[in-house]
Design a protein around this nucleic acid. Structure first.
Lengths: 161, 161
DNA sequence: GCGATATAGTCAACCCACTTGACCATTTGA
DNA sequence: TCAAATGGTCAAGTGGGTTGACTATATCGC
């Protein structure tokens, strides 16, 4: 079993790096599947924007910015772009005339469904390599750690896709 | 055991996200330890630059660029900066008058030792949460996947610290 | 050897996602 | 009721990267 020279010696403290590499490999896999399907890949922040709006329809730009951990200006720009591409709709907010109510369009929801499916495929390949039981254990371990670190507080959802 | 609402329902395809969040949490932990010690945090690409030069003394800027997956111009700029801060030395290459031979200074090596130690601390806290046996299993699983994806080929070492 | 071509590195211009700062319109609350 | 807080926009700046053009040295085919 030939392990890459850079990772040959096992040192304490290497697990964070292994996590990064693994995540990077999965992300690359995801994007190449997207490309195979001829779908535009959108960009890093977009994935989390979709995911947030799918779960919180009617959110405002400021809500989104807080969730993504970026400024409202940056969030506004991203939303404008997604609106241009017909993934997101901005409507007048029912209660606050300053605000806009953001929702995914049908096209946006369709993209989220596809992304969900592709991520599931990626995870599936991981499961095939390490075994489904190990996947379940790993899922549980990561959740335990995340819960330990953040508890009920909002989890920063920034890096990637 | 209160799990964050965004992660409450367990869906297939969520593991890549869990990996990202976990890595992000570990990175934040690393940086806050660095800040506690009053050390300048340097920046994303610097960590991998250090790591590479520590393992490949005498490498050239082009080598480094290839390793990091960035252009030689970008690598050159990063090296210049690290040299200004006395972490890296550029010397005439013994065999090629066009090239420069890059090595870490003692200050650079000291930083790498500190970083190694802090990452080990971070990993240790992870181990305390999930248990040392789980950590070992996770280490093994991630390596198996990375090996499956990249085999002997160079692993892209870009994202983070 | 010699000339064509490849390679190490630099300088300069540009790009993109994000930031800070200033501002307007509306809402909130003492 | 009016001062302060909040949602959103515009404009300028920044950081880490890019592409492109160039010089100096190396290498390879003949």
């Amino acid at each position: 079993m030939p392990t890459n020279p850079d990772l040959a010696e096992r040192r304490p403290g290497q697990v964070p790096l292994l996590l990064a590499i693994t995540h990077r490999a999965m992300t690359d896999h995801f994007h190449s599947r997207l490309a195979e399907l001829g779908r535009e890949p959108l960009r890093p922040a977009h994935g989390y924007t979709f995911r947030y709006l799918a779960g919180h329809p009617g959110a405002t730009t400021v809500d989104l910015a807080a969730h993504l951990g970026i400024t409202k200006q940056a969030a506004s720009k991203a939303v404008a772009e997604l609106q241009d591409w017909d993934y997101v709709q901005r409507q007048p907010h029912p209660l606050d005339k300053r605000a806009q109510s953001l929702t995914l369009t049908e096209r946006g929801r369709e993209y989220v469904r596809l992304a969900d499916q592709l991520w599931a495929e990626v995870e599936q390949r991981f499961a095939e390599v390490i075994g489904p039981d190990r996947l379940a254990a790993l899922d549980r371990d990561l959740r335990a750690y995340i819960d330990h670190v953040y508890g009920d507080q909002p989890v920063p959802l920034r890096p990637v896709w």
